[in-house]
Amino acid sequence: MIEREYASAPMLGLPIAATHIPHFLAEGPTWDPVRKRLLWVDIMAGLVYQGRFTDEGAIEVEQAVQFPDTAGAVAVSRSGEWLVAGEHRLYSRSVDGEIVPGLKLIADPDRRFNDGKPDPAGRFVVGTKGPGGEMLLQINAEGTPAVLDDDLGLSNGLAWAEDGSALYSVDTLGRCIHVRDYDPATGEAGERRKFCEVPQGYPDGMTIDSEGHLWVALWGEGCVIRIAPDCTIVGRVDVPAPHTSCPTFAGPDLDTLVITTATEGMAPEDIAAYPLSGRLFTVKTGHRGIDPNLWAGTPTALSLEETA
């Protein structure tokens, strides 16, 4: 259990609004270390954005790519192919821009894919959002899914320890961060156990830094908190947008914290009070991230054979 409220934690920098686009549900910022670009999604719009950092710390949008339905998360391979979690299936996008649909993996029309990331070996781990009993799936390079969890309120943020030996995962509606042992070589995941509960706001997207501390966006609270391995809150970043959705460390030195926000669920008067809602923010916190994991699959593997 987190023992103290985040309001008593020290501030870790002053963020700046880095984009001008008021996203409805910006999420999943991902650093592409090969091409030195930032990727992120606007989930319900089905858009994946690519941008670059300017010398002033802003993010210049280079392209916005439309996918057939929703875009819950994006991952990138070493060769530059994208993997996108659509509504009920995964999509790949080649370096030439061709979008290839994978097989349908979710049958329930009221459920969709949500946050996802590659594991240290390049498998794609992705959760779902829907009516309840949500899943966390591990999808190997051949496109075959394995169920890690099937009892979540809302599967959300993911992070691995730097050596890959532990997987942290968020259940937003349960206001809980879980942890389990993880073997990157085999993909074997241990039994889930509670890492900590978050009593204020709703934990959403998450990343980890080089000191093994988690950075968790609190939806509804307008902040990102830094959680130590002993589950105490040791820092925070306040953002002038209440719906903070996900943080990640980006940039060539992985020392810029990028925070996505959303306007989802906000009335016009709320947006008037927080006019920067839906933007991406950047901040130098004095901390660094770890090397991002890259997707190791191939577009053709996503549609080789039907799965049960």
Rank of each mutant, 00 (worst) to 15 (best):
D291W: 09
D151I: 05
M135V: 12
A73Q: 10
D96V: 02
P22Y: 01
E191M: 12
I16E: 14
F281I: 00
T244P: 04
V61Q: 07
G127W: 02
T207A: 02
D119H: 09
Y274A: 09
L39Y: 07
T172Y: 11
N140Q: 04
A272S: 13
V179A: 15
L158E: 06
A141F: 05
V126T: 06
V76H: 10
F53Q: 01
Q50S: 12
D55V: 01
R4A: 13
L103V: 12
V76F: 09
D204Y: 03
R236M: 15
H178I: 02
R192E: 03
D230C: 05
P22A: 04
I43P: 00
G164L: 08
G164M: 10
D183H: 14
M11V: 15
A185K: 14
A26S: 15
P242H: 05
G57L: 07
P299W: 05
D108M: 09
G13I: 10
A272H: 09
M206Y: 12
V258A: 06
D149Y: 13
D238P: 09
R288H: 15
P10K: 06
L152P: 03
A308T: 13
H23D: 13
A107T: 11
G164H: 12
F124W: 13
A73I: 05
E306F: 02
I106S: 01
R123D: 04
A217D: 06
M44N: 13
R192F: 07
T285I: 09
L302K: 05
T300D: 15
L38F: 01
L148K: 12
D209N: 13
M266S: 00
Q63D: 10
Q63M: 06
Q200L: 04
W215E: 10
I271Q: 07
P131I: 06
D270G: 07
T298S: 14
T186C: 07
D119F: 11
L83D: 02
G97E: 08
R180Y: 11
V74H: 04
A58F: 00
P247Y: 10
T261F: 00
R78H: 12
Y49L: 02
S303C: 12
A250T: 08
D55A: 12
G102W: 06
V258D: 03
V84D: 08
C196D: 10
S303L: 11
L173I: 14
G51L: 04
Q50E: 14
R175K: 15
D270F: 00
L254A: 10
K117M: 03
L103A: 08
S277D: 09
A241S: 12
A141R: 14
V258H: 05
D115Q: 07
P145M: 01
E162C: 12
M135A: 15
A58R: 01
R78M: 01
P120E: 08
V239L: 07
Q50M: 04
G212E: 14
S169D: 14
P33I: 04
K104Q: 15
A107Q: 11
A146E: 15
